[in-house]
Amino acid sequence: MSAAGLAEQARAARRARTGWLLSAPALLVLLVGAAGPLLIVFAYSVLTRGEYGGVQLPLSGEGWFRVLFQRDIFDDTISLNTAHLAILWRSVWLSLATTAITFVLGLPTAWFIATRPERTRALWLFLITIPFWTNLLIRTFAVMEVIRNEGILNSLLLRLGLIERPIQILFTDWATLIGMAYVYLPLMVLPLYAAIDRFDMRLLEAGYDLYASRWRVLRRVVLPLIRPGIVAGCILVFIPSLGAYVTPRVLGGGTNMMIGNFIELQFGQGRNWPLGAALAVTLLVVVMGALLLYLRVTQPARARDE
C-alpha cells in the first residue's frame, strides 16, 4: 500500500475515534435511559417475589416459569397456564385486527387528504390530529358512551328497527377492538398520507393506459410504491396496540385483559413482581420479533410475481 494510502487510513482511524468521543453523551443517555431500566426489569424477573410486593434474593426462575405454566397447589403437577395463554393470544389477535382495521380505514382517508388541493390539505390533516389534543382516557370514555347498551349506536339501531334489543358490545373484545382502532387510526393515516403525498399520480394514468383496472393499479403500482408508509403505519399501530393498557381496561372490562393490564396486575394486586417483570420482557421480545419478521418480509424491494 502506498504512503498516501496509509496516511488516509490513519486519518480514517482518527476520525472514527473522534466520532466515538462526540457521540459519547448520546450513548450515555441511551445506556442510562434505555438499557439501564431494561436491565433492572430483567433482574427483577429472575428474583424471588416479596411478601408484600417487591423482590428479594435468592435468584429464582419462578417468574419466568409462571409466564406460561402453573403448578397445581395440591400435587405440584405442572401444566400450561391457559388463562395466561388466552391473554397473550388476545393481545396478539386484537393488535393484528386493530392494525388491519386501521389500514383498511386509513388508506382511503390518507388518499383523500393527499389528493385534496394544496390549500385544504392542511385543514384535513389538522382535523385528523384533533383527537390527540384530548386525553386518551377521555377519548376512551367517549367511545364507551357510543357503544354501551343505552349508547348512541344501540339507540340508533333500535330506532331504525334493525335490532330488537341492545347488542352487548361494551366489556367484550369487540369493544376493545373498536376503541383501539379509533385511538390508533391517526397513527396509521399520517405515515400513509406522507407516502401517498410523495406518490406520482401520473403513474395512475400510465397504469390505466396499459390496460390495468383500478384494482390492479392499486395492487401493482400504488401499494408497492407507498410500502414505506404502510410499514411505518403498521408498526406505529401494532406496537402500542400490543402494549395497550387504558383501552382494554376501560372498554374490555376487568375480565378481557390484554398483556398490558396483566402486567399491571402483577405489580399491583398480584404482588408478583418477578412474574410482571418476566411478562414485560416477554412483551418486549414479542414486539422485537414481530418487528424483525415484518422488516424481513417487506425488506426485499423486488415486487413479487403474482
Binding site: D200, R202, L203, E205, A206, G207, D209, V221, P224, L225, A301, A303
Partner: peptide, 11 residues
C-alpha cells in the same frame, strides 16, 4: 401513450 414525463414505474 408515451407520457411527457415518461411515467415509468420506478419500482
Amino acid at each position: 401513450t408515451v407520457f411527457q414525463s415518461y411515467a415509468l414505474f420506478p419500482h
